[in-house]
Design a protein around this nucleic acid. Structure first.
Length: 659
RNA sequence: GCGCCUGUAGCUCAGCUGGAUAGAGCGUUUGCCUCCGGAGCAAAAGGUCGCAGGUUCGAAUCCUGCCAGGCGUACCA
């Protein structure tokens, strides 16, 4: 039995034993791991609570339960005032784990009736290069999608492209009104091999903002450009399309470097052209989710009440209402977001058309919404649950979308609409100075500088990946581990990606990352390369052993070690500790999913690596004279190596052949 | 004003649904290469878990109130 099954079994047995012994029904007990292995492997504290209803000391209750038999458990002990501790059948556990780790399919196959989970992430405005903050979003979302797939969920990853918004309009203003460029010139610039187009737009966007500040009258161009782009006609719209299409491709290229993939790009232009909003609008009017405000500051707007519980008419401050349609009749951003989310759940009664892009990510095709497209496109959307990876500043908007769902009567969907909120990445003072950014008194006090696209303040994603890769390659070169420059490049790339992804994952979502080159470029300590190195070490043992024993295959270790041999070997606490920890991967992933916290997996992987390195240091495997013991040691090495490899794969981190 | 989030070692951060002695990395000090390659291992030092109450057999964790930060609270996206 694997750990999750064992736990389920113990919980069930516990309830039955309690019922038999004391004739009371209890809720499913919480399980935890005792602080030390001598105490046991799993623990239940429910006897403390039972003490009240049964009017008996908790320890006495625990002792009575401990005397009963539990399936898959070798022994039950009582500790302290009434802790009930379970000691597992170690050899049996190791054998099941071995079967699981040596099987080809890491993840159970998704069952179609279980529904689909849409994970939306990245969603960068397509008007400039991606920066380090965008990488955090993408890595969090990509990892979370991997976790869900690993646990057998059907997952669809969407990347929302706001190609008709003001940010694109601003860059169009830059090209047209500031630089006086034609569509053709912009097209050529986008296609040119020289300076990167997204970098060019990064600077241009900042210049446009300076211009607006210098000459507020220029803002008129922005409004005009925005309208033209929304309508999708004329030269302005064409420049907008050229800009956003080119930049989306560059963003995909950046994300591909760090193993991030998408199934579908949802573009706002199609939401507009296919009239998704007007359908949503009708629906909201019909169901009374929104109302036309007749007085107050929101007079003439369609608004939604944010707190439907309070039926009292509000004094017309408009505080508890949100404008969905402006008095001019145009829809706000929130309105479009509501329409998009209704579509995600298949509640709009209408679909996009889809076109396949000539790009593949992680070996899978990427699709994009279109007004007319490929009839063979897979059925996108129609989710039963959705996670939107969006920074914490947008909590309000996400709240509004969920409120709209409830106002429409979609309570179940509203409950399955998750805002995967994370804190921003800011720049350390050292980092800001290195980039030549001004550090004012406010920043000084705060100890960090906010990333600002409008000002062009930030660490560009590709620049950072380049720096990281160059440094990793230098390390590989210094250690002379690679067999040629090509392999050096490849190892360096893998190590750089490992360092980057782990760096972004080790922080919990709610922690603001203050980006500093010194920390982010570290390859030692709690870092991705440390984890990769650990797997390489384990792999080296298995490889070297196979060199001397050509008939050896790691996956056949099971036949080399009898269960009773494993049993006496695992009687040694340190070995069992490692095996037991390796068996907690799935449980950890479940917790990470429930808590929407990929960092939990990162921490787990690091702990496992640490314990393995300790083992590695204390025990020589290849020179072990006792053949049985040697096989047992190899058994442990294999279990940890495979577990760690899977954990790293879930984080999108590859393992180099050598380090 | 209101809403959400945060406050744990010198620094950066973990601490899962309340559980047994509060952990890790970095930095500091000190050891460990007859080795499966040191991107490593071990040890030492370092804590009024922001403050004050409360609930509980038990609180870093839950509740209340303060204090200090951050982010929201547009007919911007």
């Amino acid at each position: 039995m694997l750990l999750e099954q064992i736990q389920r079994r113990i919980k069930k047995d516990f309830r039955e034993r309690v019922k038999e012994l004391f004739a009371v029904e209890v809720a499913e007990p919480a399980m935890s791991v005792p602080p030390s292995l001598e105490l046991g492997d799993l623990s239940i504290t429910a006897c403390f609570e039972l003490a009240k209803t049964l009017r008996q000391p908790p320890r006495k209750i625990a002792e009575q339960i401990a005397a009963c038999r539990f399936e898959g458990v070798e022994r039950v002990s009582v500790a302290g005032g009434g802790y009930l501790n379970f000691h597992l059948d170690r050899a049996g556990f190791a054998v099941s784990l071995f079967d699981s780790r040596s099987s080809r399919d890491a993840a159970p196959r998704p069952t179609p009736q279980a529904g689909k989970i849409v994970v939306e992430h990245t969603s960068i405005n397509p008007n400039k290069a991606a920066h380090i903050g965008h990488l955090r979003n993408a890595v969090l979302g990509d990892t979370f999608a991997r976790l869900l797939r690993f646990r057998g969920h059907c997952v669809e990853v969407q990347n929302y492209i706001d190609n008709t918004g003001v940010q694109v309009a601003d860059v169009v203003v830059g090209f047209r009104n500031l630089e006086g460029r034609s569509v053709e010139e912009v097209r050529q610039l986008a296609a040119s091999e020289g300076k990167r187009f997204d970098y060019y737009c990064w600077d241009l966007y900042a210049k446009v903002f300076e211009w607006y500040e210098r000459e507020p009258a220029a803002l008129e161009y922005r409004t005009k450009a925005l309208h033209a782009i929304e309508e999708g006609r004329g030269e302005i719209a064409e420049i907008g399309a050229v800009v956003s299409d080119a930049i989306v491709r560059l963003h995909l290229r950046t994300m591909r470097r760090i193993n991030v993939a998408y199934d579908l790009l949802v573009r706002e232009s199609e939401i507009l052209q296919l009239k998704f909003w007007s359908i949503a609008f009708e629906l909201m009017k019909q169901r009374g989710a929104i109302r036309l405000e007749s007085a107050g500051k929101n007079r003439g707007c369609w608004v939604m009440d944010l707190d439907p519980e309070t039926t009292e008419p509000k004094e017309d401050t408009g505080e508890d209402t949100k404008v969905i349609v402006r008095s001019s009749g145009t829809v706000t951003y929130v309105g479009k977001d509501i329409a998009y989310h209704l579509w995600k759940f298949g509640l709009l009664g209408r679909d996009f058309h889809y076109r396949r892009l000539d790009i593949s990510l992680n070996g899978s095709p990427v699709w994009q919404t279109a007004t007319e497209g490929d009839p063979d496109a897979p059925p996108f959307g129609r989710a039963t649950a959705a996670y939107a990876v969006i920074d914490t500043r947008q909590s309000y908007v996400q709240h509004v979308v969920a409120t709209a769902f409830r106002a429409l009567g979609y309570h179940e969907q509203a409950a399955n609409l998750h805002h995967f909120a994370y804190e921003l990445v800011s720049l350390s003072l050292d980092c800001a100075r290195e980039l030549g950014l001004p550090v004012g008194e406010e920043e000084q006090q705060k100890g960090a500088v906010d990333v600002s696209g409008r000002r062009g303040w930030g660490v560009k994603a590709d620049d950072f990946i380049d720096t990281l890769t160059a440094q990793a390659i230098a390390e590989v070169h210094r250690r002379q581990m690679a067999e040629g420059p090509e392999q050096e490049q490849e190892y360096g790339r893998q190590i750089a990606v490992g360092a980057l992804r782990y760096f972004l994952l080790r922080f919990t979502r709610r922690t603001m990352i203050v980006f500093d080159f010194k920390d982010a470029l570290a390859f030692e300590g709690e870092t991705g390369p440390y984890l990769q190195y650990t797997v390489v070490r384990a792999q080296n043992i298995l490889r070297k052993y196979a060199e001397v024993h050509p008939e050896f295959h790691a996956s056949e270790l099971k036949t080399l070690v009898a269960e009773h041999q494993l049993k006496s070997f695992l009687a040694e606490g340190a070995f069992w500790e490692l095996v037991f920890l390796a068996g907690q991967l799935e449980l950890t992933v479940d917790q990470a999913i429930a808590a929407e916290e990929p960092a939990m997996l990162a921490k787990y992987a690091f702990r496992l690596a640490q314990e393995f390195n300790n083992f590695y240091h204390r025990h020589r495997v290849l020179t072990e004279p006792d053949e049985v013991r040697r096989s047992c040691l190899l058994y442990v090495v294999y279990l940890v190596a495979e577990t760690l490899r899977r954990a790293l794969d879930l984080m999108g981190i590859e393992v180099p052949e050598r380090m």
